[in-house]
């Protein structure tokens, strides 16, 4: 039998300082923080990106409602947590994805990755990313696009010819031919987001505006995302790569540093391309599925960074943010055990 404490009774070690934050204030802050990226996605990819996002959000909220009714627990769709899951899931999908795929992904996120574990606060894996991984396993043909569309005409100012153009994503180029990245994209474009990619991930600028808002409101901590992005930027420099002629090239060779500005710019391009900024600030920092202590969060970020760099440089996917966070979610319990705060005067365990 589950013992139910009265909601007004707070059980925990002191000191007890009560804050004004609640689940719904935090979740709606996250929704507000994602609005710039949402607006930018519509500008970058057209109205269909907005339709995908709204479909995912609506189906996430509807699933939450249906399951909470079935479980006979109080319905909490107004706290915004399901909306955040739907938004983040939609932001990881390519802009041309069929609407039913986005809807099914939301259903999986909420039903399997969240409510099977008991609902908000109980899940082990980030629901949005679990939904994304489910879609890429079950509907890979709906996601597969060698070239990704982007409405470049809006930016060129010529609105009369609103044709979409298609290009390979920066991550794909960074994996197949990293030396040629700046022949395709300028660093500034990567920062602003005038690049192909998933719906919400392209604009580092829009995402950073939202992240700054969350950091000012103390909803996310800077340590995790900074550790994450720095680790990726550093490791893409340090990892040796096999050149086309079979020789292994790396940072220890003088020829590698012939153009140090390019090396740094390429590392910056890695940091700005793909879903790294979105994953680091909005997904890895999920309060439920990340470690509790600040030290643990930094370790979590660094671990994600290592995995992203390994997958991007050596792996079979051009992008590894989703899998890196899911894999680190798997070991959060171990990080929490390692970084358990000590009582005053307590000595380290053997």
């Amino acid at each position: 039998m589950i013992q139910q404490f009265p909601k007004t009774l707070i059980v925990g070690p002191g000191p007890h300082i009560s804050g004004a934050d609640s689940t719904s204030s935090i979740m709606w802050s996250v929704v507000i923080a994602l609005v710039p990226a949402f607006i930018f996605s519509m500008a970058n990819f057209g109205w269909y990106a907005g339709a995908v996002t709204i479909t995912a959000v609506v189906s996430a909220v509807a699933t939450e409602w249906a399951i909470q009714r079935m479980r006979k627990v109080s319905v909490t769709i107004t706290d915004g947590s399901a909306a955040v899951t739907g938004l983040l899931l939609a932001f990881t999908l390519p802009p041309g994805v069929p609407l039913y795929v986005a809807a099914l992904g939301s259903v999986f996120s909420i039903a399997v990755a969240k409510h099977a574990f008991g609902g908000l606060g109980m899940n082990i894996w980030n629901p949005a990313l679990a939904g994304r991984a489910f879609i890429s396993a079950a509907y890979s043909s709906a996601l597969f696009m060698p070239k990704w569309p982007v409405l470049s005409s809006i930016f060129s100012g010529d609105i009369r010819t609103l044709d979409a153009v298609t290009m390979a994503t920066p991550c794909a180029i960074l994996q197949s031919d990293p030396a040629a990245i700046f022949q395709h994209y300028r660093l500034w474009d990567l920062f602003i987001g005038r690049i192909p990619g998933s719906i919400g991930e392209t604009s580092a600028l829009a995402l950073l505006i939202g992240a700054a808002f969350l950091m000012v409101r103390k909803i996310i901590d800077w340590r995790l995302p900074v550790a994450y992005i720095l680790t990726v930027a550093l490791l893409v420099i340090l990892f040796p790569v096999r050149a086309a002629d079979g020789t292994i090239a790396g940072f220890w060779q003088a020829s590698f540093w012939a153009d140090p500005v390019f090396v740094l710019e390429r590392s910056l391009a890695h940091a700005l391309s793909g879903g790294l900024v979105m994953g680091a600030f909005f997904m890895a920092t999920d309060m439920v599925t990340s470690p509790i202590t600040k030290k643990g969060q930094a370790m979590f970020g660094a671990g994600c960074g290592v995995l992203v760099a390994v997958i991007r440089v050596y792996g079979g996917y051009p992008e590894g943010v989703c899998y890196s966070i899911l894999l680190m979610n798997t070991v959060v319990w171990a990080i929490d055990n390692m970084t358990k705060p000590k009582f005053f005067g307590e000595r380290a365990h053997a």
């Binding site: 082990i124 894996w125 997958i311 050596y314 792996g315 899911l326 894999l327 798997t330």
Partner: peptide
Amino acid sequence: ALKGVPIAFICAALMALAFMGFLGL
């Protein structure tokens, strides 16, 4: 309904999804 073995299988499935990240390594 999901206590015990069922949730363990769901965990195994989600772990398998996460481990798909290593594909092609």
